[in-house]
């Protein structure tokens, strides 16, 4: 026990060791996050040209990005992806984790390993796998469709089908790890809560609504934030599967920023401004998710 403002020699030693240990992380954070961020901020207010002199342009780059129809379209697209992926993914992984909890000691580990496999597959490989399934020429589904004497289905020619397939691929990839996080959360709920509820005469639904859901809040926050930031930064799947098509309906902000980085049509200041705006969008939406599912400390404490 220590009174406020007073530290014993041992505590002072501990504090010093503590600070010493976090210094490497702070230095790395400073070099690799804060300095680049500060430089990016500075460059975003200029018409940055690598070989010429950069002139200050004020908020012009931000204005141009916000006025750009493709950037706005990409934001709209990614919000659709967020709406398609997050609720469905959370519900499915939660239900699966619940099922996992009830599984026998033999089936449980097998199911856990099986669903985890896609997590270790890269986005590039996942894209190729799903292209093998949905491709127009040579895809498994279209092969079967042709065998049945029907016309091929142009999956990636329809905005909603294309978005849907990308969303499914993304969910397939993340399903394993998120299910296990949900499962760990479920296993963490003390059995005594349920026993006490049973003594009080609570039925299954009541136990689920009054014990399971509230106890899982922090896990839901973790999963929701992970999913939101991950989805908002989606790049590899649409880049490889559709290239942003049909008619820019699967173009994501990250793809837009990447295309501008490569393009000579805009100054690099413009690209940096777009990236900073995207950072703002991700930050805002993540804090919105935080507020939506209010964080509370575990009821155990």
């Amino acid at each position: 026990m220590s009174t406020k403002g007073y530290h014993s020699p041992t505590q002072r030693m501990d504090l010093r060791t503590g600070y010493l240990m976090i210094i490497p992380s702070l230095v790395a954070l400073f070099i690799f996050v804060y300095i680049p961020l500060f430089m990016a901020l500075e460059k975003s207010f200029t018409n940055w040209n690598f070989y010429g002199t950069s002139e200050p342009v004020g908020f012009r780059n931000f204005e141009l990005v916000l006025q750009n129809q493709l950037f706005r379209k990409s934001i709209g697209n990614i919000l659709w992806f967020v709406l398609m992926i997050i609720p469905a993914q959370m519900l499915l992984t939660f239900l699966f984790a619940h099922a996992l909890k009830g599984m026998s000691t033999r089936l449980g580990p097998f199911a856990k390993t099986s669903v985890y496999v896609p997590t270790v597959i890269s986005g590039i490989v996942a894209s190729v796998i799903f292209l093998f399934i949905f491709n127009y020429q040579g895809g498994i589904i279209n092969f079967l469709v042709r065998q049945l004497g029907m016309k091929r289905i142009a999956f990636f020619n329809d905005p909603w089908l294309a978005r849907g397939i990308i969303a499914i691929t993304s969910m397939w990839m993340g399903f394993g790890s998120l299910s296990l996080i949900m499962y760990a959360g479920l296993m963490n709920i003390p059995v005594s809560y349920y026993e006490a509820a049973e003594v009080d005469g609570a039925n299954t639904l009541q136990k689920f609504l009054r014990i399971t859901i509230p106890s899982m809040k922090n896990v839901f926050i973790l999963v929701a934030i992970n999913l939101t930031t991950g989805t908002l930064q989606m790049f590899d799947l649409p880049y490889l599967m559709t290239g942003g098509n049909p008619v820019n309906n699967t173009l994501t902000p990250m793809m837009y920023i990447y295309n501008n980085f490569k393009s000579a049509d805009y100054s690099m200041g413009y690209t940096v401004a777009a990236a900073l705006l995207m950072m703002l969008v991700i930050g805002t939406l993540s804090s919105f998710v935080f507020r939506l599912i209010r964080s509370e400390k575990s009821q155990d404490e």
Partner: peptide, 19 residues
């Protein structure tokens, strides 16, 4: 001229074909 302009024309074709 900038690719944005060419891209708008391709979008126009795409809108006729797919939308």
């Amino acid at each position: 001229y900038a690719w944005d302009i060419s891209a708008q024309m391709l979008t126009a074709i795409g809108e006729v074909v797919t939308a």
